[in-house]
């Protein structure tokens, strides 16, 4: 895999062929295209963890509805801001909607300017070829001071890689987060089968001792 530089990025973004085009929309400012990455901005929708009577989250036992119910969706229009307090966690989304062609993948990293304030922009990190949607960003304030988050601010960087031998996606890769436009809660609950297999495996292993 090679990382696309500015010239290649501009070519990919301006490609007339929609099947080959790297769509990053809206690209409000061409200066967002850097030497080896594209700056991404913060969107207007957030998911905050709701305080509930529940003891916690168990992705192997809780239903998707139970996981979703613990999150509260908040919309912060342009010009307003969301304050993220120390040790607090919020899911956000990029302002830009991406459509990667089948021969491109990407990595998302935080911008160091935010990291130095204590804001960690951890994300799903790897973006699959063919992905369509706004990226979910997992924001944590690890600093000691509350931080104001303003929609539209440049918050992360996207490094694009070209694949040498692109392959069609697995079925489960296609459907899990299809074309999201807002931050997505964890879909681990949809992998409950895996948790059940692990549980069964644990029982099998422990029964060998009995």
């Amino acid at each position: 895999m090679t990382v696309l530089g500015r010239e290649d990025l501009e070519h990919a973004i301006d490609d007339d062929d929609l099947d080959r085009r790297l769509v990053i929309t809206p690209l409000l400012d061409r200066t967002q295209i850097g030497r080896g990455a594209v700056d991404l901005r913060l969107g207007t929708e957030f998911l905050l963890l709701r305080r509930t009577q529940r003891p916690g989250l168990h992705p192997g036992k809780d239903s998707q509805q139970e996981v979703d119910d613990m999150q509260e969706r908040v919309v912060v229009p342009f010009g307003d801001e969301l304050w993220l307090h120390p040790r607090h966690f919020v899911l956000a989304a990029t302002l830009e909607y991406l459509a990667l062609p089948d021969d491109m993948a990407a990595y998302v990293v935080g911008r160091s300017s935010w990291g130095r304030l204590g804001l960690i922009v951890a994300t799903a990190v790897f973006v699959h070829p063919g992905f369509r949607g706004c990226l979910t960003l997992e924001l944590v304030n690890e600093g000691d001071s509350p931080i104001a988050l303003s929609p539209g601010i440049r918050i992360a960087q996207l490094a694009i890689h070209r694949l040498e031998n692109p392959a069609p996606p697995h079925e489960d890769e296609e459907e899990k987060y299809l074309a999201p436009v807002r931050p997505q809660p964890s879909r681990l609950a949809s992998e409950r089968e895996n948790f059940k297999r692990l549980e069964a495996l644990g029982e099998k292993l422990s029964s060998r001792l009995g």
Binding site: L18, V23, T25, P26, Y97, A99, R132, L178, A179, V181
Partner: peptide
């Protein structure tokens, strides 16, 4: 095409 129609 599942591309957000903001305008190309």
């Amino acid at each position: 095409r599942l591309i957000l129609p903001v305008g190309l």
